[in-house]
């Protein structure tokens, strides 16, 4: 097992580290070129496959995708965002060879446009964007919402509106991934009263008549392994199964409450009634302090955050519901909004 990944209990069963998994010679030699052993790679794949609840037969496909001689092009564009999604993604990078091989995401793709990290600026950046979006088939990753009115002036970059930048970049994309709750559902800019007329990527695609495969990866920000896992899955095997909100079911099928270790006290008590009370120290359920876990679909309580270090409830704060549509404006008990107001209903989702 990859020690860096704290694997969820529920998904350990279907996948085992298989010494006999067949990798062709070309794949193995390309792995070695990347400084990664066959065994180390299999252990990485097993970790990823476990997170995604994949069958073992997928491992060679993951290997082939991860070591393809020409790397798939990924174009990452930012609109009305806070850079938190990219910060989160960066937390999945690690470049020291040796035992950590989570760096595969960077070896596996060619990140051809990303404004926060790229060397090119200004004219040279714009020129690069034109070049990389002229070859069809790239994965377009988008973070941030976009003001629906092109001439509002609320988003302009390189002299072009958000609408025009997105439309042009979407044209030749093979897949669009909306990363984060702002891109997936409108997020903070769209919170009442939506001062800039912000819309999500799916809304903008509908209004522009863009028909392309779309995957929403919500979360404020999303868990890095979820972002990389979705990209890896797509490269290995095409579109993952999606729910009605275009979320990959492999990561968003369950609520964070379902797999939370505090769930037991939700059934039987004791609940934490204030922060730092005796029950809070015991790990009592945070439902009465406003936890939105029962209504929030995400993998925080299984994959956890920052290489399995912790997650919001483990660190004493209820879930604020950040992966759900319109979570900033959720109406709770007694018709009130608020992260410290108890959910209107006791359980499951809406």
């Amino acid at each position: 097992m990859n020690k860096d990944l704290d694997l969820p209990e529920r998904s350990k069963a279907p996948v085992n580290l298989a010494e006999d998994t067949i990798l062709d010679e070309a794949t193995v030699s390309r792995l070695l070129e990347l400084g990664i052993s066959r065994r180390g790679f299999l252990s990485f794949c097993t970790g990823m496959a476990s997170l995604m609840v994949l069958p073992q037969a997928m491992i060679p496909k993951l290997a082939a995708a991860a070591t393809a001689p020409t790397k798939p092009s990924v174009v990452y564009m930012s609109f009305q965002e806070c850079t938190g999604c990219l910060e989160s993604l960066v937390n999945s990078f690690a470049f020291r060879g040796g035992t950590t091989i989570d760096n595969l995401i960077l070896n596996m793709i060619s990140l051809d446009y990303q404004e926060t990290l790229m060397a090119a600026a200004g004219y040279q950046a714009e020129d690069l964007l034109k070049t990389v979006t002229s070859k069809p088939g790239y994965v377009l990753v988008v973070d941030g919402s976009i003001p629906a009115k092109w001439d509002s002036g609320y988003f302009v970059s390189g002299g072009r509106s958000g609408v025009a930048r997105f439309r042009d970049a979407a044209k030749n994309a093979g897949l669009i991934i909306a990363v984060g709750t702002c891109a997936s559902f409108g997020g903070l800019p769209k919170a009442d009263p939506n001062p800039t007329g912000a819309v999500s990527i799916s809304e903008l695609m509908a209004s522009l008549g863009i028909r392309k495969p779309l995957i929403n990866v919500p979360g404020c920000p999303p868990i890095p392994e979820v972002i990389t896992g979705v990209i890896l899955y797509y490269l290995a095997s095409g579109m993952p199964s999606l729910d009605s909100l275009y979320r990959p079911t492999m990561f968003y099928e369950k609520t964070v409450h379902d797999e939370c270790y505090r769930e037991e006290s939700f059934e039987d008590g004791p609940f934490a009634l204030t922060f730092d009370d005796a029950n809070a120290r015991k790990g009592g359920c945070l439902f009465k302090l406003g936890c939105k876990g029962p209504a929030t679909h995400n993998a925080c309580s299984t994959i956890k955050w920052n290489q399995g270090t912790s997650f919001p409830m483990m660190s004493g704060h209820g879930c604020i519901g950040c992966a759900e549509p319109d979570f900033w404006d959720r109406i709770n008990l007694n018709g009130k909004k608020g992260f410290y107001v108890q959910l209107a209903h006791g359980g499951d989702d809406d």
């Binding site: 925080c300 920052n306 660190s315």
Partner: peptide, 8 residues
């Protein structure tokens, strides 16, 4: 804070 970025 339970996560980063955006710890609680």
């Amino acid at each position: 804070g339970g996560k980063d970025p955006h710890p609680n």
